[in-house]
Design a protein around this nucleic acid. Structure first.
Length: 375
RNA sequence: GGGGAGAUACCAAAGCGGCCAACUGGGGCAGACUGUAAAUCUGCUGGCGAAUGCCUUCGUAGGUUCGAAUCCUGCUCUCCCCA
């Protein structure tokens, strides 16, 4: 269940708490991506004790291929398998239908795809992705959708929305006719699609709202379209999605994207950016964004970022982190990932605080300026 | 003392008469990354220039040739084998 705690007066921003079987999630929240049952390079202990991540993601496609549902079932679900007792959310594999273009074929039945690991053939359907996510046992599971590419023409987007809606009905049917395997409740979130076409987004949002699930997601954004298009679509969709349910903007995004979306009434985010870009040397800090590989940091012995409350951000210097990253040392990727996630978690935590204090807008505007700085 | 091999850009290493400012790695410099087929990918890496381009380079000094990193000679240095 979802409870709104407070609302900002100048914007659509709100703070709330989403209660799941594995704990409460304060919103707005950012969810670190842990595709294959691991937030790459980071111990679960650091996610809880240092970063204080409230919920992380897993991915149906990756976990289904490896280790496979048999092992996950024997393990007792993903929580037990990966020794994570906080909330989990799994994506349905819909994004892989998008990103593995060329390795898959869409039919009315579902998506036939080839494994990127061994080339073997598989099919995902709205039904079996619910079944798999029942086995994985995430607290929040996603309906199987088609994440259409950008740019894409109107007719393609229209058919894609229609397909996603048909799939949603079937997923809901399977979801409501089956029980959780592990004795606790799971929530199914449906996903709004429609590309950058306002009318398709309206149609899709109305459909998704009408299903009346515990929370709703917006997909198919930040796939290459200009940020203004994304913000416009969020405005349109959030006007229609129920206000008393959490809204999850999938795959977004940059720190500025998060703030702009929170401003427009989004409550949940996930993105690979803090981890992937961190591994590749990009650091988000309270003073701006830095590329730690740049020579200028070679003898900067100041802490990575004293504004970010992670142990690594305050313990290790930029010069040291640069050395690790340049030397290709594992620890560099680890420190950068932990730091960036801590930065993201602090950002959404601050947003929540500012909403409750009633000064979200001015703070947001100030932050967006800082975030655009390249050091 | 005798015999042999070799000296190429920051490092390693190709090239053995013109297509060479010089393959390829590494290193260096910069960029990209948004529900993770990514600890990945891209560009640049002698000087000047926006650029056609111009200038200086392949141990060193000469020579042969229309033309040399590539062929010849002297010198310097390095490595290996034999005594």
């Amino acid at each position: 269940m979802f409870k709104i705690i407070s609302r900002d007066k100048e914007s659509k921003a709100r703070s709330g708490v989403l209660t799941t079987a594995h704990g409460d999630i304060p919103t707005p929240i950012f969810m670190p991506v842990g595709t294959a049952g691991t937030v790459k390079g980071i111990l679960q202990r650091d996610l809880t004790d240092d970063i204080n991540a409230k919920i992380i993601l897993g991915n149906t496609y990756h976990l289904y291929l490896r280790p496979g549902t048999e092992i996950l079932k024997t393990a007792g679900g993903l929580h037990k398998f990966m020794a994570w007792d906080r909330p989990l959310l799994t994506d349905s594999g819909g994004y892989q239908v998008f990103s593995l273009t060329g390795n898959r074929k869409l039919t009315a039945e579902g998506a036939i795809f080839k494994s990127h690991i061994d080339g073997s053939r598989h099919i995902f359907t709205p039904e079996n992705t619910v079944d798999i996510q029942r086995i994985i046992g995430a607290d929040i599971i996603m309906a199987f959708d088609e994440c259409a590419p950008w740019p894409c023409d109107y007719n393609y987007a229209k058919e894609s929305v229609a397909l996603t809606h048909q799939w949603l009905d079937r997923a809901v049917e399977r979801f409501t006719s089956t029980e959780p395997l592990w004795g606790y409740e799971q929530f199914l979130f449906p996903i709004v699609q429609g590309g950058t076409f306002d009318d398709l987004r309206r149609i899709s949002a109305e459909k998704i709202a009408s299903v009346g699930l515990m929370g709703n997601a917006i997909g198919g954004l930040s796939v290459g379209e200009p940020a203004e298009d994304m913000y416009r679509i969020i405005d349109i969709v959030n006007e229609i999605l129920p206000d008393d349910k959490p809204r999850y903007l999938m795959g977004v995004g940059t720190p500025s994207n998060l703030l702009e979306a929170i401003d427009r009434g989004i409550d949940m985010f996930d993105c690979v950016m803090p981890t992937r870009n961190g591994r590749n040397g990009m650091l988000f800090t309270g003073e701006g964004t830095i590329n730690i590989r740049n020579r200028k940091w070679i003898d900067d012995f100041s802490p990575i970022d004293t504004d970010t409350p992670s142990i690594v951000s305050n313990t290790y210097s930029k010069a040291y982190l640069r050395h690790l990253v340049m030397a290709g040392e594992n620890l560099g990727a680890q420190i950068a990932s932990i730091h960036n996630l801590a930065f993201y978690l602090k950002l959404v935590g601050d947003a929540r605080k500012k909403i409750e204090e009633g000064n979200f807008r001015p703070w947001k505007e100030q932050m967006v300026k800082v975030l655009s700085v390249r050091l």
